[in-house]
């Protein structure tokens, strides 16, 4: 196990965005965080990364509590829908990730090729399309060194071919031992390349495990057991 989240809660006024969220993240796995819009997926990632304060809860690694500031060495979070440094070219953003965020320079060229960023290197980030921007953000995240990488909606804005290429890139990255924790609202996408899942709905964890484990959990809750399809399991548990 890489780290464990226990009792994480976050309120926005009267709305409980996260309520007593607990789950485990295993080293080297591709963990999918799935849930409908508004389930609290982005809030959970932001609280874990320390860019949003949580009201309560803890993260433990190796039996030790890890404070929000210490988590920076454990995980890196790539938010969805941002356009960082919009006037700067992609080339500079990658260099900045290596220089400032401590990214791995050795991976730069490989990621440029895998994510097809070559033609975009001299283009300002603010002028990129949604899909192009997403690929740049993925490159930024994949360049970083932290053992766990949290990516909010990694396939959002990508066409079919790009989504397939990105999925392959993420898989290759995970094969090197890095843990990926991906927030995906398209359950069919998540089912394709995640090892395990955390199901989140209305700020609560509804289940955690492989598709088979989740199907068993759903069967325990319902008289009619859902099939082994993740979508069916998700609907049964949420």
């Amino acid at each position: 196990m890489l780290f464990e989240v226990s009792g994480l809660s976050k309120r926005f006024g009267r709305v409980a965005a996260l309520a007593d969220v607990s789950f485990q993240v295993r080293a080297g796995e591709v963990l999918g965080l799935i849930g409908p819009n508004g389930a609290g997926k982005s809030t959970l990632f932001e609280c874990l990364a320390g860019v949003l304060p949580s009201d309560s809860g803890s993260v433990r690694a190796g039996g030790e509590a890890v404070s929000a500031s210490e988590r920076r060495a454990l995980l890196f979070y790539v938010p969805d829908g941002i356009a960082p440094w919009p006037r700067q070219p992609v080339r500079w953003a990658l260099d900045f990730t290596i220089g400032f965020l401590g990214g791995q320079g050795a991976l730069r060229q490989e990621l440029v090729e895998r994510l097809d960023l070559g033609p975009l290197l001299n283009q300002a980030i603010g002028t990129l399309s949604k899909g192009q921007r997403k690929r740049v953000l993925l490159a930024i995240g994949l360049l970083t060194r932290q053992p766990a990488l949290l990516i909010d909606e990694p396939l959002e804005g990508l066409d079919l071919r790009q989504a397939r290429d990105v999925a392959a890139t993420l898989r290759a990255h995970a094969a090197r031992g890095r843990t990926l924790f991906l927030s995906i609202h398209q359950i069919s996408d998540a089912a394709r390349f995640c090892d395990r899942f955390v199901l989140l709905n209305s700020g609560r964890v509804r289940g955690e495990g492989t598709v088979a484990e989740l199907a068993a959990l759903a069967a325990a809750h319902h008289a009619a057991a859902p099939s082994g399809d993740l979508e069916e399991v998700f609907l049964a548990l949420t």
């Binding site: 960082p84 965020l101 401590g102």
Partner: peptide
């Protein structure tokens, strides 16, 4: 505004 802060602040 751009979201760059969320990336930069993770540097510590």
């Amino acid at each position: 505004q751009s979201g760059a802060l969320k990336l930069e602040m993770q540097q510590g």
